[in-house]
Nucleic acid binder design. Structure first.
Lengths: 142, 142
DNA sequence: TTAGAGATGTAATGTTATTACATCAATTGC
DNA sequence: GCAATTGATGTAATAACATTACATCTCTAA
């Protein structure tokens, strides 16, 4: 089984981690996830990191590099352009509110293309692109 | 003294850290910098982090979020659009070769605008934007 | 039924970043 | 001059994030 387009069957640990992230309504660090899952038998960081690796590979979870934290993917399945990253989209971008910690996930074709064009012009072969906007969301900026 | 447009006078520690990054021809972690500067009297991480904070604030150094590492800014002074981030540019983007660790710093008006437009449409007020493309540079992809 | 692959559990360690507290030097206002 | 403030520095300790190493275990395909 490789690079499934639809959600694959998850292992127990993967399902627990994914569920925790879905309930969270915001990004969580690996160690926060670990704490949430202690009641379910989790005892070591590696259990979380292994599950996160897989979920990320499946495109079901994203890592926020500027936060060292993780969020469940907010895209609906089959939405918009199928990309190299499985699950149904190309590069995703994030707007992260530094006040309320809310994260907006979005996709922007033009940005995607523009960066792709730059890469092509330089002979650079992208494997993963990170776009994160830190700032204040509408509510918090008011 | 606040938010200088030209390079401010650096303190001894700031100058040492900046110099180390300039010589490096590639990103360095804070602890790598620390090791390089032990001969110059550095003994603790905080000495490095404090200098990096200031240099970043001055726009002379960038943090690569996906690497937890730092690079000296590759822009010439006075080049292109003066932005909110001092030093003479708006958002910068990075292409990071995962094979040879070379980093290309660039600026793309269209991407900048496009993300700005998205933010405006959502009422989001950006403070800092991260754009990092991981992949293989032309040489390493060949 | 056994060899391989993948998932799991656990401990230990490595790497990155911050908090807390003390000191020192330059500047400002009196 | 000389407090008072501000900013830079030094040091130790700790917190936060992530990986390596090794031992099982379970399923499945030959």
């Amino acid at each position: 089984m490789n690079a499934p387009i639809v959600s694959p069957a998850l292992t127990k640990n993967q399902a627990l981690v994914f569920d925790a992230l879905n309930r969270a309504e915001g990004p969580m660090s690996a160690y926060t996830i670990l704490d949430k899952l202690r009641d379910h038998g989790f005892r070591a960081p590696l259990q979380v990191y292994r599950a996160l690796d897989k979920l990320t590979e499946f495109g079901m979870v994203h890592r926020l590099e500027s936060l060292n934290a993780f969020v469940a993917c907010a895209h609906r399945e089959h939405e918009c352009c199928g990309g190299a990253q499985g699950h149904g989209h190309g590069t995703v971008a994030f707007a992260i509110c530094e006040s309320c910690n809310q994260v907006m996930e979005f996709h922007d074709h033009k940005v995607d293309h523009q960066l792709g064009d730059w890469a092509k012009s330089k002979g650079f072969k992208p494997s993963k692109t990170t776009i994160e906007i830190r700032g204040l969301c509408e509510k918090c900026a008011a």
